[in-house]
Design a protein around this nucleic acid. Structure first.
Lengths: 203, 203
DNA sequence: AAATTTTTGTGATAATTATCACAAGTAGAA
DNA sequence: TTCTACTTGTGATAATTATCACAAAAATTT
């Protein structure tokens, strides 16, 4: 098979991915830059329960969830506190560890059978230097992530636990359908039992 | 006065600013790109109490605090909830409004006599297109902001109010010295009275 | 300095939430 | 199906936090 044909087939596949949609929705980008991104995108199939970033390891990649979802958590005296969930169509990483090359204080785990595209940090930084379109994509992605985190932080300052749950119901109901009550509790900063009562409208 | 001399004087001044330090600490950048950034940087002196972004307005700039500090807050049923404080040497904006051109749900106010450098969004976007160094700076700044927000969010999931206060004492004691107890309370998600008791070690 | 305004401290009490213990329900594996 | 493991629900109680009311202290203004 000649390269041209293989290349064309790859592109056909790529254009069907959520990753393709995510990038092209976020930014204007040439086919050639898209190609470069897909060239360094390492597709991985992750079994349910598998850890993709382990606490104390240095985070070297950013991950895009094509299917399934990931849970980010921190260990606090033996209990796990969930800081984030990343569903299909979104990126995640541990930015602090990625930037500083210090050990991560978080772990990231697949909660379902999951397909991710993993981007090596160094390769991505090279692409940033090669293509301003790609760096622009990186910037816009960070903007999106920051806005989401700001919203999430404000939940804790503005609302009571019950209102926080209600907010999720109205704004990201998906999370309530897919994440178990036990795992949602620490994400909302309440005890499991309290969340159970909130859900039953007893609070 | 010839242009060369004036230019040199401007640069001499600029290089003494916190803004200069911030940019050059964050990224490698040529003198010419630095010049371009300073060309669009609008220095403003803000009186204590003055609002620099009003709720319901569309945010069009990002601001760097050279002196004094800014408070970001949201109005919730008549009471103000502080979502952020921006001290000397840091940038702030309302990213959600800036990106979408939707009205801001936050206000930003000077809490002391404050000097800021204000960057117009459209001018900055133009510079991103002109200079990849500048876009790179933008990306790195966003990374820094996102890491800070992630840390701040996790405070609410991991720690009790008393521990959150303790965390600030150990990690950003400046905020405790400069922000009044009343204003700090909503930032930490507790009632003023509770924070007073925490500070007195009665909790 | 005196007066006024704003901020902080504190007690009393109500409301909320956490914790513990265990029952009930659900899902998966044998 | 039956057993087992895991998740969720619920009561009782303790601990924490919010709220209200007002006093004390500090900062600003006159």
């Amino acid at each position: 098979m000649c390269d041209a044909v293989r290349h064309s087939e790859i592109m056909t596949d790529n254009s069907k991915t959520l990753l393709y949609k995510k990038i092209t929705d976020l930014t204007e980008i040439s086919v050639s830059s898209l190609d470069k991104l897909f060239e360094i995108a390492n597709q991985r199939h992750i079994a349910k329960g598998q850890i993709v970033l382990k606490q104390a390891q240095i985070c070297k990649t950013i991950m895009f969830v094509e299917k399934g979802y990931l849970r980010t958590f921190i260990d606090k005296d033996g209990t796990e506190i969930n800081t984030d969930f990343t569903f299909e169509g979104n990126f995640t990483t541990n930015l602090k560890s990625l930037r500083s090359s210090f050990p991560s204080d978080m772990s990231i785990q697949a909660e379902e059978t999951t397909i991710i595209y993993e981007f090596d940090k160094d390769k991505l930084l090279e692409l940033y230097n090669v293509s301003s379109e790609i760096e622009s994509f990186g910037r816009k992605l960070l903007e999106q992530l920051l806005i989401a985190r700001e919203d999430h932080t404000n939940l804790f300052k503005i609302y009571s636990p019950a209102k926080r749950y209600q907010y999720l119901q109205e704004n990201t109901p998906e999370i309530l359908q897919r994440v178990s009550l036990s795992q949602l509790a620490s994400y909302l900063g309440v005890a499991r039992e309290t969340l159970s009562r909130i859900r039953k409208n007893k609070i």
